[in-house]
């Protein structure tokens, strides 16, 4: 009996701790929703900022973020997928492979601000790309590389080994086997990983601080060597750097960023769920 009461108390404490996690999240989303929704209208989403960002819209910031994300994915997707293919299909168990794994773990742990420093020193100054969409995209691309590699590797691993053996036994080369059998079946998993990478890239601020982000730039970029505004940085600027920005606009910007990132994540979650249901082997 005593043990049963102990268990009840223990489980209640566990329940409280999960409440401490979940309730603030729900409140936060609702809070931003309620406060930000009044700001959302056509002009806010598609207009240029006015009066030193105290009025007008956030269109350039949305576009900037989209450009950055596209650039980052274009850079990291091919490298990430090929890298995962190397690790799961070609690599032998040796020191080099272990070093690669170590490097991936390390890349995923490097603080985002350190990526910012690296992007500044390497892309902006060393390669002389300047503060530009190019520098920012490459920096973000390296940052999301471990996400894409890990996800791809996992989905490659989930393709049964027997398929590879059968394909080879019919006279396929290794690459033909990968291209015809392994990759098509790993695709949904790769897509999920890529989407999560996109969400991460869209929400990060620190890596773009010194590599791309423009404080105030009320027009759209013309080339990859231009600076852009970006949503996360814009939120930072209007909430800490500029006095007198109406609250409505701050919450509105936060809401747009939050909805963007969370809906990208939601797509990934749904995709993964569908994938689990559909598995045929």
């Amino acid at each position: 009996m005593n043990q049963k009461i102990k268990q009840k108390i223990a489980f209640f404490i566990l329940f409280l701790s999960i409440c401490l996690v979940v309730i603030p999240i729900v409140l936060l989303v609702i809070f931003i929703g309620i406060k930000g929704l009044p700001a959302i209208n056509w002009e806010f989403l598609t207009g240029l900022p006015k009066q030193g960002m105290r009025a007008g819209g956030i269109f350039p910031a949305i576009v900037g973020t989209v450009y950055l994300v596209i650039g980052a994915v274009l850079f990291s997707l091919p490298i990430g997928i090929l890298s995962a293919i190397y690790l799961s299909e070609y690599a032998k168990e040796n020191i080099l492979t272990r070093l690669i794994r170590l490097a991936i773990i390390n890349l995923s742990g490097v603080p985002s601000i350190v990526y910012g420093l690296f992007g500044l020193a390497f892309f902006v100054i060393f390669f002389n790309f300047g503060t530009s969409v190019l520098s920012g995209s490459l920096t973000l691309g390296i940052m999301i590389l471990p996400i894409i590699i890990t996800a791809t590797q996992e989905s490659l691993k989930s393709v049964p080994y027997a398929f590879r053996e059968v394909s080879l036994s019919l006279g396929a080369t290794k690459w033909q086997t990968i291209k015809n059998i392994v990759l098509p079946n790993a695709l949904p998993g790769i897509l999920t990983g890529t989407i999560l990478g996109i969400a991460r890239a869209a929400g990060e601020t620190a890596p773009i601080l010194f590599t791309v982000a423009a404080f105030y730039l009320p027009h759209l970029p013309k080339s990859i060597f231009d600076q852009v505004m970006a949503l996360p940085y814009h939120l930072y600027v209007i909430s800490t750097q500029i006095p007198g920005v109406p609250d409505r606009m701050r919450y509105g910007t936060a809401l747009v960023l939050l909805v963007m990132v969370l809906s990208i994540n939601l797509i990934a979650i749904i995709l993964r769920y569908q994938l689990r249901k559909k598995k045929r082997w």
Binding site: A162, S167, S169, A172, P184
Partner: peptide, 27 residues
């Protein structure tokens, strides 16, 4: 590849490739 084409193999457990019936045979 040439050798594996000339000396084919059928495995213990049936392993269809995740393709259609036609594409399995045409693979």
């Amino acid at each position: 590849q040439e050798l594996r084409k000339k000396i084919g193999m059928v495995f213990a457990l049936p392993v269809p490739l995740p393709l259609t019936v036609f594409d399995n045979v045409a693979y």
